[in-house]
C-alpha cells in the first residue's frame, strides 16, 4: 500500500520508565529459580506513570525532533491495550499536554501489540490523502501479566511517538506498507478482567510467525526487494527468541536486527515494542539506510513498513533523548517493590 502523496517520518520520540525487574526475580519467586528466562529484565512503570504519561513524554520528544509547532498537528492517535480509562480517551490528555488542542482529531486505537502501528497506518493515510500535513501516531503500554504466568517475565512499559508529514520534510520517507490480518484468538482479555489469557504455544506458529512472515513477504514482493536490500529490520518483540527466529525465517541476518532488538533489556512493551525498536534504529541510522518495520498484534495481525532514511536524520537525532539513554537510566527493583509499583497488593 502506498498513499497518493509521498509521506515520511518528520519526528520520532521514545520513552521507557526508569525501573527494571530482572526476569531472575520472577523465577526466584515462582520456580525457585528453575525457569528459562525469555528476557534479561523488563521495564516497570513508576507509581505515577500510566499509558497517558508515557505517551506524553514520547510525544514531546517527537515534537522536539520534528521542529514543528504542536498546533500544526491535526491528529493525535494513541494505540494501547492499557488505556487509563475504560471510557475517556487517552489521546485528549496527550493532545492537551503537548499543546495540540483544540483543532485536532484525537482517538484511541486498540489491536493488542499492534495498536500503535495501526495508528501509524492511519496517520500515513491521513497525510497521504492530503487531508492534513501532520499527524501523530503513538504506541504506549503498561502491560499486565498474571503473577507467576509466563507473561510476567516480559510484560513491560514504554512508548514511542511518530509525526507523519510530507516526504520533503521527512527524516525517513515511506516506500510502502502492508497489513495482514486474520481472526486468530491467540491472546485476549475480556471486559473487567485485570489479566489477559493466552494460548501458550498457540501464540507462536499460527499467530506471531504466520502473520509477520506473510506481511513482510507481501511487502517485499510489492516493492521488489529482498532482505539484503535493508540496512536494518525491526520485528515485534514479545521475548528475545521470537524476533530472532522470524528474522531467520525471512532471511534477515543477526546484524540487521541487532540495533532494534530491545526486548532482552526492557521486555515486551506491547504497542510500543516494534515502534521503540524503530526509534533505536533511527537514533543510529545514516542517510540512505532502508529500514523494515513489522509489528504483530494478537487477535491477530501484522503491519509491515519500508522506510528510507534521508539527509535530515543527522540534525534531528540529538534533539531529544535517545532510546539507549532511556535504557541506560535504570533502577532495578526486586519482586516485592514490583508488586507494589504494579498495584498487585490487595490493600483492603
Amino acid at each position: 500500500m502506498k498513499p497518493l502523496r509521498e509521506v515520511g517520518i518528520i519526528g520520532y520520540g521514545a520513552y521507557i520508565p526508569r525501573y527494571r525487574l530482572p526476569a531472575a526475580e520472577v523465577a526466584r519467586v515462582w520456580t525457585e529459580g528453575h525457569a528459562g528466562l525469555p528476557v534479561e529484565e523488563k521495564s516497570v512503570p513508576g507509581l505515577d506513570e500510566d499509558t497517558a504519561t508515557i505517551a506524553i513524554e514520547a510525544a514531546r520528544n517527537a515534537l522536539a525532533r520534528g521542529g514543528i509547532a504542536a498546533q500544526s498537528i491535526r491528529a493525535v492517535w494513541v494505540g494501547s491495550e492499557s488505556h487509563p480509562y475504560a471510557v475517556k480517551p487517552t489521546s485528549t490528555i496527550v493532545a492537551e499536554a503537548i499543546g495540540a488542542t483544540p483543532q485536532v482529531s484525537a482517538a484511541d486505537w486498540e489491536f493488542a501489540c499492534k495498536a500503535g502501528t495501526e495508528a501509524l497506518q492511519a496517520a500515513i493515510a491521513l497525510v497521504g490523502s492530503g487531508m492534513t500535513d501532520f499527524a501523530m501516531a503513538i504506541g504506549a503500554d503498561t502491560a499486565q501479566g498474571r503473577p507467576g504466568d509466563a507473561l510476567e517475565y516480559t510484560t513491560a512499559a514504554g512508548g514511542a511517538a511518530y509525526i507523519i508529514g510530507p516526504r520533503e520534510h521527512s527524516l525517513a520517507y515511506l516506500e510502502g506498507s502492508y497489513s495482514y490480518v486474520t481472526d486468530t484468538p491467540d491472546f485476549f482479555r475480556r471486559p473487567y478482567q485485570h489479566y489477559p489469557e493466552h494460548g501458550g504455544r498457540f501464540t507462536g506458529q499460527p499467530a506471531y510467525f504466520k502473520h509477520i512472515t506473510h506481511a513482510v513477504e507481501a511487502l517485499l514482493q510489492e516493492l521488489g526487494y529482498t532482505p539484503g536490500d535493508f540496512a536494518a529490520a525491526v520485528f515485534h518483540q514479545p521475548n528475545t527468541k521470537f524476533p530472532q527466529r522470524v528474522a531467520q525465517m525471512l532471511g534477515f541476518s543477526k546484524e540487521q536486527i541487532r540495533v532494534g532488538l530491545l526486548a532482552p533489556k526492557i521486555g515486551n512493551t506491547y504497542a510500543a515494542s516494534s515502534l521503540l525498536g524503530l526509534t533505536a534504529v533511527l537514533d543510529e541510522a545514516k542517510p540512505g539506510d532502508r529500514i523494515l518495520l513489522a509489528s504483530f498484534g494478537s487477535g491477530a495481525g501484522s503491519d509491515a513498513f519500508s522506510f528510507v532514511v534521508t539527509d535530515l536524520i543527522q540534525e534531528r537525532q540529538r534533539l531529544a533523548p535517545t532510546t539507549q539513554a532511556y535504557i541506560a537510566r535504570r533502577k532495578p527493583v526486586d519482586y516485592a517493590l514490583y508488586v507494589r509499583y504494579r498495584r498487585k497488593l490487595q490493600m483492603h
Binding site: R20, A52, A325, Y326, R329, R330
Partner: peptide, 21 residues
C-alpha cells in the same frame, strides 16, 4: 485521574554506566 507537572533529575542524553542489581 489527576495529571500534572512533577520534576525529575535531568535525563542524560548519552549512555552512562548502569546500576548493578
Amino acid at each position: 485521574i489527576i495529571y500534572g507537572y512533577k520534576f525529575r533529575p535531568v535525563l542524560e542524553s548519552k549512555s552512562s554506566r548502569p546500576d548493578r542489581f
